[in-house]
Nucleic acid binder design. Structure first.
Length: 1076
RNA sequence: GCCGGAGUGGCGGAAUGGCAGACGCGACGGAUUCAAAAUCCGUUGCCCGAAAGGGCGUGUGGGUUCAAGUCCCACCUCCGGCACCA
């Protein structure tokens, strides 16, 4: 576009600094270039990605046949404070990657939206009365401007905000999909709710439900009960859940919003645990799939691990203990059924539903006073009631804070241990949680720390039924060789025997009749002459008794692990009692069962299996799996969120609105505050309750108009972020949340065989703080949509990448209060704020540390390209690194050199000539191409930039006549284009091209022939040091290299008087001469 | 407590088991300038030495290897996650 110059042909003199050439790449020039190109990209729609069908399909034919790349950022909350330089770190990275992908032949989807529902806008509204929609829209607008300034190549037609009615209409629609389905465990997937009714009708499924306590057949249920039964099977259901209820704020609070002393972080009002009827999503139905499918995705291992831990699968057994004197049975979950022989009491969570049923009127004879509660109470009922009330008053946080002290009361009842037939007392205690397992445990104080502490406090029997194999072994060994030092030759063998015995592998009662007796009678025989004990495992092969090196290690196989024994070290550890059960802690690791008639001598894994079999044969339980994951509490007493598409009828039962009545729009309000009250038992009155015209409606939902009242809660902030990546695909679709053909195009792409690949977003970049919640919730919704046939991939995000944080210096004054970092001066190694000395620390950039730096100020000072480059150059993308303003200039100078290589600073004319590059330059160029490509593929932008810098430095140092061969200039521009798109486009234009964006060009490809050198330099090491370097032909043989190395004068000197014992030639690397 | 991740010059950081410190900042010296800023060129891990050269060096201690920042074991420090999960 020569007639339309992008940047000024000459600069007004008054804007320039004297002495600076008019066409030097300064901040002023950078800003001109950048703004002009941003306009041109937008005008030409350079970043538009074509869909196969629908509104956005223009240009699809040209792109058809290319592989797709869907590159996604975790979208921001549009805060009123705007962005600081930490925010765009990930956005810049994805932009570079997206541009790189386009230039290497992909059709790329890259868009940006706003997660705009949420508390800050609502709180601002409460304070000022400004409608959150207004603040939100203003914030989005200013953030858009900030992002545009960075040159991010987003398809702006696809930008969505979760608060748009056209967006949340489909959030509500997805909620209805979830509401109108149930999880079929037999099929392992969600199915439409109509199928469930059919299953009940045909008798294929029993209508089991709390709403049908007598388990009547479906045919015998009335309509209302049928509705209640079906509702209790849905993936979205109403449930009474204990929540943090703050009556003064009129809302429930997340655990993070409650302080350690049980008050609200905001306002310091009391917070109560209180059951409230809430919407809950049945994410637990997906626990197994959410766990299993982590194997399909390319995610950082720590994130997968965090999700696995969060889901918390444990395998074990559900066992039933009959309660004496009542017909009840208490079901417990345990991961160690093999320890049931050591279960000497039971504990129920205070909220357990059986508590009142099993609590008798009077204490049994001989009940210790300490079991009767703090007072102590005169009857079990009083003691239990008192304890339950105290437990209910505590928040989760408080419960955790008091984690050390074990408290509880005796219920007055006993149960029968099904394995031993013994009577065991039943307690209630708050160390047993209602939300996990069955809310009840069998307590095995010999092998569980918590039970042990409780047993110590209440004087309950502690019985060992498992011993660690090496200890069982040691006990035996001691019995036979009381003095280990008297065993200098045979000890290895003895241990070998012994371990075989202990592990059950070579258990031979006839050969070692004493073993069990020894174990039973010699508990914890710690002594000076004790035998070595196991140190943690290594998976290294090695026979029993193998000696290794100076440390006389013995490798012993125990329990399927290989355990290292360093004799002296182990004796030390052993003597210190670290691995030994003395009178202290219980033994909690796997070991060998003892004192357990049905399973004696077995190692834990086998013992668990056999114990379950044994208990099954007694009718006392079955094997079972439990998860830590809880169902997802989905209601919030807030205004600024998605309304539920749900109304309640005259029976107070929920009714889903039909799709045709969507969207359910948020009503306008003047006052956004929930109604506060001091009465903790008053029902919550969410802000939507104020919209009385809205809350009470008359609708015809079939069968004529009737009165309904709307659900007044709103959805949590996570709702929109669960599916926004699907709306980017087809943002303007009014008929569907996303067209299936579009969805397949971008999510499935060319994957025809999904084995081993789950498809989905090709690269998802965001912070680790979302490792669990957002990513788990989104996976859950995606799987539900998959089950119902709305999406084609089982997982939403194929590859996940966590960018690090940008840290910045923060300063505290003498009171420990943060001061504005931008006002701090550095003098003589000290830091001062308004004359006062302050202390420096480093922390995450943000408002709380008063250390934010905005991208706008950096753009003004250096330009966006410099900022982009600096953020990528700071270090590896996934690491946290400190923001150092001093370093930025290095990247600016690099761009100045890049510019100067091709442009005359005085005239602005191109220095590109049609001559060929010299051989060295060409080789270095192709090496750079290969390197930058490899680095881009693996998101190692810091080293890619270093390579570009290195090549540019080579050019500035070698060009004698200040001209630049075209081949060099153009390749360099293309290589730099993804990183610094504005200057690249400007240079591309100035060297004679006319396109709306260099991103449309092809990325350079290295010529393999130029990557191979004719001669290579090898380092020669002698006696462990580099003595010299030799240059040899690249194809030199080992013999020739060896000779050349040995012939070198310096090598000969170093080797003088020594015998060469070995020469190692590593082709292409070095030569190492070993001599003695 | 349990589970992860990370420790390399003055600073940010490079380094398929094969020449530690690429590249950038800073510092020092020089060019330009009346001067400064900006820009450009050169030097720069530490110690000894005028130099040539030598010694020491990737948190600590061991091990494997011809060769370890990189692999193995133990320990120390920092950061993150979970936390009475039976």
């Amino acid at each position: 576009m020569p007639d339309q110059p992008i940047s000024t042909a000459s600069s007004p003199a008054d804007e320039r600094q004297p002495g600076v050439p008019p066409f030097r790449y300064t901040a002023r020039l950078a800003n001109e270039i950048e703004l002009a190109w941003q306009d041109r990209w937008a005008a030409a729609g350079v970043h538009h990605a074509p869909n196969p069908v629908g509104d956005l399909s223009a240009g699809f034919d040209a792109a058809a046949g290319r592989p797709k790349a869907y590159i996604l950022d975790m979208f921001p909350y549009p805060s009123g404070r705007g962005l600081h330089v930490g925010h765009p770190l990930g956005y810049i990275a994805t932009d570079i990657f997206a541009r790189y992908k386009r230039m290497t032949g992909f059709t790329v989807l890259h868009a940006m939206g706003y997660d705009a529902f949420g508390l800050p806008a609502e709180q601002y509204a409460v304070q000022t009365g400004t409608h959150p929609r207004i603040t939100t829209e203003q914030n989005i607008e200013s953030m858009r401007g900030q992002l545009r300034r960075l040159g991010l190549g987003h398809d702006d037609r696809r930008s969505v905000a979760t608060t748009d009615v056209t967006f949340y209409r489909w959030t509500q629609w997805i909620f209805l999909q979830i509401y109108n389905s149930w999880y079929d465990d037999r099929a392992g997937r969600a199915r439409p709710i109509a199928d469930l009714v059919a299953e009940f009708e045909s008798g294929a499924l029993e209508p089991i439900s709390a709403a049908n306590p007598e388990r009547k057949p479906w045919a015998d249920l009335d309509d209302l009960t049928r509705r209640r039964v079906v509702d209790s099977w849905r993936l979205a259901y109403l449930d009474e859940q204990p929540v943090n209820w703050c009556p003064m704020l009129g809302t429930v609070l997340a655990n993070e919003e409650v302080t350690a002393d049980g008050r609200s972080e905001r306002g310091n009002y009391p917070v109560y645990r209180r059951p409230l009827k809430q919407w809950v999503l049945r994410i637990t139905a997906y626990a197994e799939r959410l766990l299993r499918d982590l194997d399909l995705v390319d995610w950082p291992e720590p994130v997968k691990l965090m999700q696995r831990n969060w889901i918390g699968r444990s395998e074990g057994a559900r066992l039933r203990f009959a309660v004496e004197q009542t017909r009840d049975a208490i079901e417990v979950f345990t991961t160690r059924p093999d320890t049931i022989f050591g279960a000497t009491y039971m504990v129920l969570a205070p909220e357990h539903h059986l508590v009142s049923a099993i609590t008798p009127e009077a204490w049994p004879k001989g009940t210790p006073e300490s079991w009767k509660g703090a007072s102590p109470a005169s009857s079990p009922r009083d003691a239990v009631a008192e304890y339950r009330a105290a437990a209910a008053a505590k928040s989760d946080v408080q419960r955790q804070a008091e984690t050390k002290e074990k408290t509880g009361v005796f219920t007055g009842s006993h149960a029968i241990n099904p394995a031993t037939g013994e009577r065991v007392p039943i307690f209630i205690a708050d160390y047993v949680l209602m939300g996990y397992g069955t809310g009840a445990i069998m307590a095995v104080p010999g092998h569980d720390e918590r039970d042990f502490e409780f047993a110590e406090a209440f004087g309950l029997p502690i019985r060992d039924v498992v011993y660690p194999a090496p200890i069982a072994a040691a006990a035996w060994f001691l019995a036979h060789t009381p003095d280990a030092d008297a065993f200098p030759l045979g000890w290895e063998l003895a241990i070998a025997d012994f371990v075989a015995l202990a592990t059950g592998a070579g258990y031979d009662a006839a050969r070692y009749p004493e073993l069990l007796d020894v174990v039973r009678t010699r508990r914890a025989p710690v002594g000076e002459d004790a035998i070595p004990v196991a140190l943690p495992a290594i998976d290294q092969p090695g026979g029993v008794g193998e000696r290794r090196g100076a440390v006389q290690a013995v490798w012993i196989e125990t329990l399927g692990d290989i355990i290292a024994l360093g004799f002296e070290r182990a004796r030390e550890v052993f003597a210190a009692g670290k691995f030994w059960r003395t009178r202290g802690a219980p033994y909690t690791e796997p070991g060998v069962a003892v004192n357990s008639p049905a399973i004696d001598g077995l190692r834990t894994n086998e013992a668990k299996r056999r114990a379950v079999e044994h208990l099954e044969s007694l009718g006392a339980g079955t094997g079972a799996v439990t998860y830590k994951l809880r169902d997802w509490l989905f209601s919030r007493q807030r205004y600024w969120g998605e309304p539920f598409p749900i109304v309640f009828d005259e029976h107070d039962l929920p009714v889903a609105l039909p799709e045709s009545m969507l969207p359910v729009e948020l009503p306008d309000l003047d006052n956004f505050q929930p109604e506060a009250t001091e009465d903790p038992d008053a029902p919550p009155r969410p802000p939507l309750g104020r919209a009385s015209d809205w809350a009470a409606v008359t609708l015809d939902l079939g069968g004529g108009p009737k009165s309904y009242r709307r659900e007044l809660n709103t959805m949590p902030q996570w709702a929109g972020s669960c599916w926004y990546y699907l709306r980017y695909l087809d943002p303007t679709n009014e008929r569907e949340f996303c067209d299936p053909a579009v969805e397949r195009h971008w999510m499935l792409g060319q994957i025809s065989n999904t084995a081993g690949l789950c498809g989905g977003v090709d690269l998802y970049v965001g912070g680790v703080e979302h490792a669990v919640l957002h990513l788990l919730y989104a996976r859950f919704w995606h799987k539900a949509l998959y089950d119902l046939g709305h999406v084609s991939t089982v997982e939403p995000f194929q590859k996940l990448y966590n960018q690090g944080y940008i840290l910045a210096p923060a300063y505290t004054d003498s009171r420990g209060v943060y001061v504005e970092a931008s006002e701090v001066e550095e003098r003589d190694g000290g830091f001062y704020h308004r004359g006062e000395p302050v202390r420096r620390e480093f922390g995450k950039m943000g408002k709380s540390l008063k250390n934010s730096v905005t991208p706008d100020e950096i753009c003004a000072e250096f330009g966006a390209d410099t900022l982009r480059l600096y953020e990528m150059y700071m270090g590896p993308l996934d690491q946290s690194k400190p923001w150092n303003p001093r370093d930025i200039v290095g990247m600016h100078r690099f761009l100045q050199r890049l510019w100067r290589v091709m442009i005359d600073e005085e005239t602005g004319a191109s220095r590109v000539v049609e001559a060929a590059a010299d051989d060295t330059t060409r080789r270095l160029l192709h090496k750079t191409i290969a390197g930058v490509r490899a680095d881009c593929e693996s998101l190692q932008f810091n080293t890619a930039i270093a390579k570009l810098n290195e090549f540019t430095n080579h050019l500035t140092r070698t060009r004698a006549d200040s001209s630049c061969p075209r081949e060099v200039a153009e390749n360099l521009i293309l290589l730099a284009a993804p990183f610094v798109p504005h200057i690249a486009d400007e240079l591309w234009r100035r060297v004679g091209h006319d396109t709306p964006g260099v991103v449309l060009e092809a990325f350079p490809v290295a010529d393999p022939a130029l990557l191979v050198e004719d001669t290579i330099e090898l380092a020669v090491q002698a006696l462990g040091k580099v003595r010299c370097r030799i240059t040899v032909p690249a194809d030199a043989g080992e013999d020739a290299i060896r000779e050349a190395a040995l012939a070198d004068e310096r090598v000969r000197q170093a080797l003088a008087g020594r015998t060469v014992r070995k020469v190692i030639v590593v082709p292409g690397r070095l030569v190492n001469i070993v001599a003695s």
